[in-house]
Structures are given as structure tokens and as C-alpha cells.
Design a protein around this nucleic acid. Structure first.
Ligand code: FES
Ligand code: FES
Lengths: 141, 141
DNA sequence: TTGAATTAAGACATTTTTATCTTATTTAAA
DNA sequence: TTTAAATAAGATAAAAATGTCTTAATTCAA
């Protein structure tokens, strides 16, 4: 559903939201260790989120990343769009060049409703909505 | 959402269902030309569908592929599972090793409903449900 | 001011996906 | 029986995604 890169990005931000004291930077090395994501791969994933203005980074001692936006304002859809691209869920299911009412493929009409529930899930869910679930100690990142 | 391979598979079967006279084989070269899919790539895609028992193939003159099952019995989910794998929509959204009520990730609960609408769309839609939409001449494969 | 810690950036390697090419096998019909 | 037509299968190539390594730049604190 999402690229591996995107999965790493989502998990990192959930981790960050859980740990966030909103003033200090959290080191990428630490995220990498705790979430078991290859360090150098992760730095590149997080650079995308930095470019997207979701987080900011600082080099050097005490460096790392922290939120630019508040976790209650960061929607899952922003993260997915920043990493996998804006068109992630608006492309035609069978890869035709356009996807709209004027140019429907055979799947188009039937796909609209499930598509709506997916995109609404992504655009309604914020990082805060997600981390509260960590109160249940079964729940994993 | 689907791999390109899977998109090609779905489009080919829709094309086949539209053309099917159920007794003759339709040549892969023809499908390749009409749907603008690279021929040798397409033969491999269709081999997966043959292995899955959805279609059968015949070599030689007058060869090609035809349905083994009736199009009204072939669900979109079968095609997707045959090509992209059984777990295409049952894997954890953020890539954790398990996805069930006993091992939920932070997204799990919120994902269940949109996931249900997607999987139900795939398991309810048969090839026949799709090709009737081709009566509308706007509709494309 | 220097050194240690840390991310940025770019080169490189590996794996997976997508695409092409060649040869073998099968089928139908002349 | 021979030939043309077609898919099967396997080798190879190209592109994209994933993963690693090295060097540069930056930051903090001793
Ligand atoms: S045109 Fe194919 S899903 Fe909309
Ligand atoms: S455990 Fe992650 S979606 Fe179910």
C-alpha cells in the first residue's frame, strides 16, 4: 500500500510524537536503533519530511529532528503525500493516464467509494490520534 | 496500489471478457497490441494467471488464452491475489510482522474500516460487473 | 579554538520490478 | 510431414527502490 520509505517515515513521526518534548532535537541514530531502520536510509527518508516542512533538523552535537508543526495538526495524508507523492490515491487503479468522471475506466465508479473511505481515513487521522493508542500497552509502532 | 504487473493482468482479463466467445483462444499478441502492453512482459503476466487456474493457454497456430472459469465467477480479488500475492491487503500498513487484533500497530484500529471497504470492493466485483460498464462508450480499459 | 557529535549529500551497491531478446515447444493446417 | 504461428521458458538488460559507505558541513561544549 505504501512504499517502505513511507512506512519508515510514518513510524518515525509516530515515535517522535510519542517522545516529543517539542524543544529538544531527537537524534536520528536513536530513532534508527529503536525502530530498527537502517540509519543512512532513514536520514534520507527524514530529509524528505524536512523538505516538506513537517519537521526541522539540526546538525552537530545535540542535533537531530523535531516537529515544525504540532503533532495534532499533522495528518497521515501529509506524510504519505510528502513521501510517496501527491497522486498516491488519485491515480487510476489500472494505470490509465487520467482518472476522473469524464475519463472513467471500468473500475472507476466502483472504486470511488472505497477510495473515499481510505482517503478520508488518511486525511482525518493526525499523529495525536495515533499516539493515544500507545496507552494500550499491546500497541506497537 | 497494485503493481504494474497486476494492472496489466486486470486489463487483459477485462479485455478478454469483453471479447470472449468462450471457445476460441485470443492471441496474446493481439491483447498486447490493443492494450499497449509489451508483448513479452504480458506473456509472463498471463502465465501467472494460467498457473492460478483463471485462464488456460494454447501454443501454436490459433493459440492464445481463454477463460477456465466463467467471467461472472472471477473476482477482482482473485486476480490481485494471484499476481501481487495473497497478503496484498492483509499486511500491516506500516510493515510490522503481524497484523491482527492481538498485535495491533497504532494504525490498526483506524485502518480496519477503510480496509474492509477496499477488500469488499475487490471480492464483490466480478469481471462481468466490470465489462457491463463498457456499454457506456466513455468508459476505457 | 578545538574536538566530538551529528545530519547532509553524494557515490556506490544490492535487490526488486519492469522490459527485451533468444531459443524451445506446441499446435493447426497446408 | 512440413511449415507457419503461437506461447513457454530462460537469459539478459534497464530502471526503480532499497541499503551502505564516505566525506563535508554544522553545532555544541570543553
Ligand atoms: S479512471 Fe481508473 S480508477 Fe478512475
Ligand atoms: S498491525 Fe498495523 S495495520 Fe494491523
Amino acid at each position: 500500500m505504501f512504499s517502505l520509505t513511507c512506512e519508515h517515515g510514518i513510524r518515525s513521526l509516530i515515535y517522535l510524537a510519542k517522545r516529543d518534548d517539542s524543544s529538544n532535537f531527537i537524534s536520528i541514530r536513536e530513532i534508527s536503533n529503536d525502530l530498527d531502520i537502517p540509519f543512512h536510509f532513514l536520514t534520507k527518508v527524514l530529509q524528505k519530511l524536512t523538505e516538506a516542512g513537517i519537521i526541522e533538523s539540526s546538525r552537530g552535537a545535540k542535533g537531530g529532528i523535531r516537529f515544525l508543526k504540532k503533532p495534532e495538526m499533522i495528518k497521515l495524508s501529509e506524510i504519505v503525500f510528502a513521501i510517496d507523492g501527491e497522486k498516491t490515491f488519485s491515480k487510476c487503479l489500472i494505470g490509465l493516464n487520467k482518472c476522473d468522471e469524464q475519463n472513467p475506466c471500468v473500475l472507476h465508479d466502483l472504486w470511488m467509494e472505497p477510495k473515499r473511505t481510505v482517503t478520508s481515513f488518511l486525511s482525518k487521522s493526525t499523529l495525536n490520534d495515533l499516539i493515544i493508542r500507545l496507552n494500550n500497552d499491546k500497541t506497537r509502532i
